[in-house]
């Protein structure tokens, strides 16, 4: 592998790519290539990861979030090594004759070359548009020079569920948020469906009126210790309930048989006689999960579609700036995890 790459060469290759695509598109037939871009999406992964999966996610995202996608594959090595390749992703929207194409750049680097990368990435970022960095590994997030690379991005997306101890990682994320960095945590994004189902219950005015009487929140999860998602959900629920006038306690409910780190159940209980017992519990195998939503004696079952990288990232890319609800929940979740 080579040890140097020139950003100017990559930019030149990108320009050539558009010329080629333009020629291939046979403009005399009324078609042509439309260049679309709303951001630079920078993804850092371990070299051992299958990049075809990553590019599949990018391809799925492109119609809604057309971007210049840059994937950096890191190899744990103390020797400096850098290489790059440039290609494009095109699709033809249904019923149209014009292709939409986005630029894709793949860079392979060793850990030792990380300090060399900001000067490569900076010129490759599309002018005036946001840069989002998606970090897919705990080891990468922990590398000494990672903050320099992250400083190019306006928003950093990561997944605390895959990053070890909740107290440690939530504390770090909260610290970064307080320093002004805009973060997104996919462990939080996975809660969207849980939060939606809970919110839908309280669209019933009768239940909403009894919200202030909730005394206990129970959150069930796989494994022995609460994962970051459990802390987030707990923090969000406590904030919401306290906002409604309740003063509930929070109880963890480890489920030995469930997949470690996954949320399986949430309960909101008022005192006996106050008439509100809410629970949402997941069942079924991981690929075809169902959620049983129970309010007092009423029960409903609904499909609980499992999120994947595409659905999670799609949600996060739709939030261009700060997510104040996430940041508030993160701050409380970090305090809770630290206190335990």
């Amino acid at each position: 592998m080579s040890t140097t790459i020139q950003p100017q060469t990559i930019l030149h290759e990108l320009a050539e790519l558009w010329v080629t695509l333009g020629k291939e598109s046979a403009p005399d037939q009324g078609s042509g290539v439309l260049r679309a871009c709303t951001m630079t999406l920078l993804t850092v992964v371990e070299e051992s990861e299958d990049t075809s999966d990553i590019w599949s996610v990018m391809a799925a995202l492109m119609p809604e979030h057309p971007s210049r996608a840059i994937v950096i594959r890191f190899r744990p090595s103390a020797e400096r090594a850098l290489s790059s390749r440039v290609f494009s992703q095109c699709w033809m929207p249904f019923g149209q004759r014009r292709q939409i194409c986005c630029e894709q750049i793949e860079i392979t680097a060793s850990d030792a070359s990380l300090p060399d990368l900001p000067a490569v990435i900076l010129p490759l970022a599309v002018a005036d548009l946001p840069v989002v960095l998606w970090c897919r590994g705990a080891r990468l997030f922990g590398l000494e020079d990672f903050p320099q690379l992250a400083s190019i991005a306006g928003k950093v997306v990561l997944d605390s569920a895959a990053m070890g101890g909740a107290a440690d990682i939530l504390g770090r994320l909260d610290g970064l948020t307080r320093s002004g960095r805009i973060l997104a945590d996919l462990a939080w994004t996975r809660l969207t469906r849980w939060r939606q189902m809970l919110a839908q219950i309280f669209e019933n005015r009768g239940y909403l009126a009894r919200l202030a009487k909730v005394q206990q929140v129970r959150i069930g999860f796989g494994g022995g210790a609460p994962p970051p998602g459990a802390y987030y959900l707990g923090a969000w629920l406590l904030d919401c309930l306290e906002g409604a006038g309740a003063r509930p306690s929070l109880t963890w409910d480890p489920a030995e048989k469930a997949v470690k780190g996954e949320l399986v159940r949430v309960e909101l209980n008022a005192a006996e006689g106050d008439g509100l017992r809410v629970s949402i519990a997941l069942s079924g195998d991981p690929e075809r999960q169902c959620a049983e939503v129970r309010v007092n004696t009423l029960a409903n079952r609904t499909v609980f579609a499992r999120d994947n990288d595409y659905t999670l990232l799609r949600q996060e890319l739709s939030i261009p700036g700060r997510d104040p609800v996430f940041e508030k929940s993160l701050a409380r979740a970090a305090r809770m995890a630290h206190a335990e």
Binding site: S2, T3, T4, Q6, P7, L82, D116, A119
Partner: peptide, 12 residues
């Protein structure tokens, strides 16, 4: 005014 100092760019 500014003047550039040495650096590493793209590994060089």
């Amino acid at each position: 005014p500014g003047q550039y100092g040495p650096a590493r760019i793209g590994g060089a």
